[in-house]
């Protein structure tokens, strides 16, 4: 499913948090969002999910305006994993994932075999099958993050919005998650902090001060000059001898004066 943003803006407390962001993300592409803290990545993801009624501009899903779709229809197409999610409810891990079926079930319709199957499958996909009976409060940050991703997958979305999905994950689960996401046949937009992980995306967008200042394939976007400007770092590009893949190494500018 194609995702397009036209001139998205959001002002809060007299400050432009998002300022005229336009995007065009083709079907099935993985789109990485990078930018310093507070540059508006999370806000942009919330707007793309249609969760900000005060926003200006449009989000288009294929040829439909997000605003013209009922909430439930949006939730069947777009799933969002926010940066932090917490609950005081004594939910089991499985019950968290079951929430993902909400948009597919009528008010009084019970869970069907298909729903149970999808929940089993997504729990397995994030390696949480063993922990399905555990309570939310007893899970680690990484386990919670994986559950939220499983919940989003259980929505069977065509667009997956992930806000720093590798946060809290150990290195194995980071790689497993990125591999899982790259194999999905859906459009993925994710905010990332690890620029080497961002290199693996099909397209990258760079956020700074609420504006999208660059957008394109990673090689053209992640130039040393731009990294210096935006992140205030010096970067060197290396090659992995085993497969000749590009790797970035970073140095603090302050150390070099």
């Amino acid at each position: 499913m194609k995702l397009r943003a036209e001139n998205l803006s959001l002002t809060a407390q007299g400050r432009a948090i998002l300022d005229g962001v336009s995007l065009d993300i083709p079907t099935g592409v993985s789109f990485g969002l990078i930018g310093p803290n507070g540059s508006g990545k999370s806000t942009l993801l919330r707007l793309l999910a249609g969760l900000e009624p005060r926003a200006q501009g449009h989000v288009m899903l294929d040829d439909t305006r997000l605003r013209d779709l009922p909430r439930r229809e949006i939730a069947r197409r777009i799933a969002l994993v926010e940066q932090q999610a917490d609950t005081g409810d004594a939910l089991s891990a499985r019950e968290v994932v079951e929430l993902g079926r909400t948009p597919w079930l009528a008010a009084l319709q019970p869970f069907g075999p298909e729903d149970h199957h999808i929940v089993d499958q997504t729990l397995a996909a994030v390696g949480m099958t063993e922990l399905a009976a555990r309570h939310w409060s007893t899970l680690s940050g990484g386990e919670r993050q994986r559950l939220q991703i499983a919940r989003a997958l259980a929505q069977r979305p065509q667009v997956l919005l992930l806000d720093e999905p590798t946060n809290h994950l150990d290195i194995h689960h980071q790689l497993a998650l990125l591999r899982l996401v790259s194999r999905l046949q859906v459009t993925v937009v994710m905010a990332l902090h690890d620029l080497n992980q961002a290199l693996e995306c099909d397209l990258l967008g760079v956020m700074s001060g609420g504006r999208l200042i660059a957008c394109g394939p990673p090689a053209t976007v992640l130039t040393p000059e731009r990294l210096r400007q935006i992140f205030r770092i010096r970067s060197t590009s290396l090659r992995d001898p085993s497969d000749d893949a590009q790797i970035l190494r970073f140095h603090c500018l302050e150390d070099e004066r």
Binding site: R71, R72, T87
Partner: peptide, 21 residues
């Protein structure tokens, strides 16, 4: 509204993203 109330577990924004009006 039982199912909608379940969806409030992670807050109102999360309920909205799960399709609850």
């Amino acid at each position: 509204h039982a199912r909608s109330m379940d969806a409030f577990s992670f807050g109102a924004a999360s309920a909205a993203s799960l399709g609850v009006s």
